[in-house]
Design a protein around this nucleic acid. Sequence first.
DNA 1: AACCATGCTAC
DNA 2: AAGCGTAGCATGGTT
Length: 949
Amino acid sequence: MMKRVYDIAGSTNKRVKVVLNGKTLPVRCFQDYVGMYLNQGGGDFKHEPVYERCSDRWERRRELDGRFVPAGELCEFDQHNQDPPRGPPWTSLRLRPAAPSRGGSCNFSCTAGSIFAVEGRRMPSNAMCCSVLQETLTTKQSKFGSTCELSEAMMKKVMKSGVVEMILDWVRAKQKVDMSRQLRGVTKNTTRVMGIPKLEDANDAGGRNSADCTLILTEGDSAKSLAVAGLSVIGRDKYGVFPLKGKVLNVRDANFKQVTGNTEIQNLLKIVGLDLKRQYDSVHGLRYGSIMVMTDQDHDGSHIKGLLINLIHFWWPSLAKMDGFLKQFITPIVKVWKDGKKDGERREETSFFTMDEYEKWKQQTGNARAWKSKYYKGLGTSTMKEAKEYFRDIEQHEKRFRWIGDRDGESIDLAFNKKRADDRKNWINAYEDGTNVDHSKSVVGYSDFIHKELVQFAKYDVSRSVPSVVDGFKPSQRKVIFCAFKKKLRNDIKVAQFVGYISEQSAYHHGEASLENTIVNLAQTFVGSNNANLLVPSGQFGTRLQGGKDHAAARYIYTRLHGATRSFFHPDDDHVLDYLNEEGLSIEPKWYCPVLPTVLMNGADGIGVGWSTFIPNHNPRDLIRNLRRMLRGMPMEEMHPWYKGFTGQILPSQKESGKYEVTGVAHKLSDTTVEVTELPVKTWTQSYKEFLEELMPQDGKKPSDDDDAGGHTIEEFREHHTESTVHFVLTLTPAKMREAEKAGFEKTFKLKTSIATSNMVLFDAGGKISKYSSALDILKEFCQVRHQMYLRRKGYLEARLTREKEILSNKARFILMVVKGELELRKKKKQDLLRELRQLGFTPMSQLDAIMKGKGGAGQSDAPPADGTARAAGAADDEPADDGERDEKKSEYDYLLGIRRRKQTMFASSGSKNGSPSGGARTRKAHSREGVEEGKTAKRLCLFCSFLF
DNA sequence: AACCATGCTAC
DNA sequence: AAGCGTAGCATGGTT
C-alpha cells in the first residue's frame, strides 16, 4: 500500500503534496518519482535522463542505465516484479541506430533486462484493470483513445544518449551468453582435450605453462603433417597443431544456430579453452597462450587468416589487442639458388614470401638467369626437410599480429561485416598493385594485413567470379576453352583427364573439383543452362530435373569442342589476342573475342567480394540482328532474356523496368484435371515436385476427404516427363478447381517467377569492373571491342599475306635467274653466294619477318601464343613447330637456297607421265614449319615452272 | 523485418 | 566416391 501511495504521488498530472501517515512524501511529480528509482542503485548512471511531456495524458521519461547487467542479475523492474505490461501505454519504443548501415533496429522490449525505462501515464477513465490490485492495464490499444507520439527532439535525445550502442552491446553479450550456454561443457576440462583425434596437443597445454604454448592452425591435413614435421625441431611441449577444414565461419553476423552447429568452432574453443562469456585481461585460464595460423602462401590462405582474426576480434577484442596472441607462420612462395658442386647442393639460396618481392629481385638482379628457381604453390610443395628448416629459423617465419588502434577494429569490420559490401567495393578499388605487407619486420599490424594482404584476396576473388564483357568467361572457364583449342579437342576426352591437362597447360592452381564443375557447366544443355554449349556433353552432364546437379562424376563423362565453338571464336583472332604469361608459360589470353557477345548468349552469374553479377541468357538471333543493325548504322532494338527450349513466356514487367516475369504453362484438361507442361526458367522439376507434394493431402488424411476440411489444393498428380520436358497432370476437386481458376493457375501452382537485370556486373576490356544497366549497354561495349579486334585481325592477315607474297616473288625471281643461267649456284662458297643474293636485291628473311612485327599479338604481351593455330606467320595448322632453330643455324637466304636441293626433283616431276608436278614435293616429309611452307611453295613453283617450260 | 535458399568458384 | 561444411552478394520467397 505504501508503494501504491508513492506511485500515485508520482503519477499525478500536477505537482501535489502527498502525506502518508503524517509524513510528507519526497515525491511531488513524475520526475521526483523516477529519481527515487535512480537513486536506489547508488545513482551512478552514465546517461542523462531524457524527459518529455507529450500531452496532458502522456508523460514519459526514460532513464538509461549504462551499466551492463548480465542476464540473471535482475534490474529494478524485475525486482519489483513489474515487467512492463505490454498494454497500450507501454507500446514499445522503437529505436533505430543513427547509421543504418551499421546494425538493424532493436525493439525496446528486448532490452527490458538492462535498461531502466519508466513511463508515466494517467489512468484513462475507461481503463480496465486485470486484478484487485489493478497492477496491469488491460485496455486494448485500439480502445485507449489516444496515442503517444514522441517528438523528433525526444527521439534525437534518446538516440544521442548512447542507448543504441548500449543495446547493441547488450544484445551481443546476450547472444554470447546464450551460445556459451549451448556449448557448455565444451570448455570444462582444461588439462586434457578428448574427442578431437586430429589435434596434436602441446604437452604443456592446459597446465602450469600453458601461457607459453602455441597452437598452430593449419590449412588442411597435409599442412598439418608439415607442421608436425616442424615440431621435431622445436619440440611438442610448447606447440600443438590442429588442421582447419577450409574456410572458417565468419562469426560476425552469424546466427546462433550456425555458431553452435559448427564443429570447427566448437573444437577450436575446446582446444584453446576459450569461453564466450569471458573477456580476457591475460591468457590466464586458456590452454594456449597464442594461436599461430599457418596457411598456404596464396590469396585463399590470406582469407583464412582473415577469418580467424575476425573470429578472435569479434568475440574477444581484448585478445586481438594482446600483442602476440595471434601470429602467422609464413612460408616462401619462391626460392632461388645457384647449384653447388655436389649433387643437390644449393648455394646462396634466397626465399621470397610474396611474388612482388620476387619480381623486384629479378629486376634488380640483372642476371636472374644464372639462378635456378622453384615455386611453392601451397604448403604441400615443401618437403619435410624444408619444413624443419622453416621451424629451425622460426624467427624469420613467425610474424605477430599487432593492434595499433581503433582503425584496426574498423578495418576488420570493413572486411567481414556482411552489411558492408559497398564499402568493400571502395576498399578493393583503393588497393594499389604491388603493395604488400612488410615481411622484413616480425610484426604485422591488423590494418596493414587487411589493406595490403587480405584486400588482394578480395580483388582476386572478384576477378575469378565475375566474367569479362568481351567473352563472358571467368578465368577458369577461359582456361578450359583455351586448352580445348590447344588440344584441338575434336574427339572425346574424359573430363577428369581434361582437368589434368588444363591444370598443366594453363597454370590452373586450384582444386580439381572446381574445374570439373566448370567444364560440366560449359557443356550443359538443359533448359535454363546454356543457349549454346561450347563443349559437348558426352555422358550424363545433368538435366533439368535437378538443375544439372545430377551430373555423373568426372571420371565417367567425356567432352569435346562443339562444332560451333570455333565459329564463335574465330581462329584468325587467335593471332591478335593478348596472351597472358605465367612463369614463362604462355597461357590463355586476357580475353577471347567472340564474333558475338557470348556473355549475353549464355548469361552469367557469380559471387565475389564486394561484387556479384547476374546476366540472363539471350537469343543469339537477336544478338546477330542487332549486330547487323549496328553495322548498317541503324539503331539497335531492345533485347529481352531468352532461354533455348523454354516454352513458357518471358515478358517485361509492367511494374518495374528492367524486370521480367517468367511464366510456365498450365492448361485445364477437365473439371478436375490440370496439366503443367512447362515450369519457369530455373525452376527444376524435382523441387517443383516437392512443392506439389506439399499441396497434396498430408499424412493421415485420405484424398477422399471432403473439400474444405483438407486444406490441401490438389488430390494427386501424375508425371509424364522426359529428361528434357515437363509434364505433370494434377487432379483437383471441382471446388478447388474453381478456386484455382479464380486465383489463376500461375499463382496457385507457383508458375510465375521473375528475372531482374539490376545486377549485371562485368569486367570491361580494360579489366575494370563496371555495372551495366541493360543488355544493349553490354552489346554496345562489346561492339566497340570487336570492331577494334577486326581492325587488328585485318592488319594481321594483310601482313601475313604480304609476307607470303614477297616470299613467292623472291622465289620465282630466284628460280628464273637460276634457270636462265643468270645466277650460278655451284662451286661457290656460301658466304659469297649470300653476298651475291644481297647485291641482286633479294629480300632477306629478317626483312620478311619484319612485315609481321607488331601484327601478331595485342602489343602488351610479347610471348608467342601457345595455341597450335596461333603461331607466327606461315605456320601450317597441322604441324608442330620447332622455333628458334633458324636464327642460329640458317642464313637470311635459306628460303631461296633450300630450293636448289630439290631442283632436280621438281623439274623431273614436272615432266612426268601424268604431268603432275607434285610427286617429289609431296613425298618429302616436312619436319619443320619451314619445310611445310617450302613444301607448299614448291608445289606452286612446280606449277609455275611447268608453265615456263 | 528477419530469415533462408539460390547460384558458383574457391577452400 | 559421395556428400557436406565454409566464403561472398543480390534477390526473391517465406515466416
